[in-house]
Amino acid sequence: MRNLGSLEQPKPVGPLKVGDAKAMRDAYGETLVALGAKDKNVVVLDADLSGSTKTGLFAKKFPDRFFNFGIAEQNMLGAATGLALSGKTVFASTFAMFATTRALDQFRNALAFSKANVKVVVTHAGLMTGPDGASHQSLEDLAVARTLPNLTVIAPADAVETSQVIELAARERGPFYVRLVREKTPLLYDEKYRFKLGKASVLQDGRDLMVFAIGPMVAEALKARGLLKAQGFDIGVVNTASIKPFDAQTVVKYAKRDGFLFTVEDHSVLGGLGSVVCEVLAREQPAYVYRHGTHDLFGESGESKPLYKKYELDAEGIALHVKKALTYKQKVLRR
């Protein structure tokens, strides 16, 4: 018997609107089911986490095209490569940490090196993994994934964007890494939104500082914008879901205008979004960058909210750091 884990059925709900909460992984599972109905070539793999990653929704609908590999991520990514080399469009899911560190050799040498048509869609990225603690939290996966040649790397900001990214990944040939988080996050987009590979999405412009955010940080940054507005500050928010390819143009544009940018990620500042932005600017438009995220540390247990509070990744924390950044900005740009 294939183990479907603690598979919960999504509750039937009416059409969601911007601001409503929905988990990216729910959107992933639903989109997989839709893709599976359209394309018989789509197969889905999991490593005993199908209840959590939501691939279980596909497994229930298309049991013949779902393969549970048990707690063996290395074999799963290898087999995913073999299936893709034989013509299948493969989605393989587990937690972010297991895909990028446990099975890194297989990810690199089998999957990415072969340009295999495998979409590694991971959940439970960042501190939002919650009470499981450091062993299950992934604060390095973007840094790892983006250094793998041939790989496209995307971290969507909400459930709407997630669905579009998954559809795009199924359409485009080649390996993808898609980074999702566990908790429900507010919808930022409606169905009119179109995700574009290699394009950032400017949600708000701001006079004082542009905040480049990724994944669940985009919603928190928008909330921070509201908090700061009440205090007389005007910040903009850019969603940089497409990490590789990356929208250098948008970053350069605001660096030219402001001379100072702010990045925030539920990830280590070593190698993640902050690094990507700095790499672009070092080459094209030198500017100051305030990088907010985790700083060279392992996570710890706790519910997502108090963890975000402790690591100052919630709206209040981001607002605090934005103010620090603005003080610093004034100092350095006046010189």
Binding site: D64, G78, A79, G82, G87, K88, N109
Partner: peptide, 25 residues
């Protein structure tokens, strides 16, 4: 060449994936 191998232990997994694809089809 059917599979890019080199770091040891990986070929059998890729072969498993290929054999699964043949079964599926």
């Amino acid at each position: 060449v059917e599979a890019s191998t080199g770091t040891l232990g990986q070929g059998l997994s890729m072969a498993v994936g290929m054999a699964l694809a043949a079964k599926l089809d």
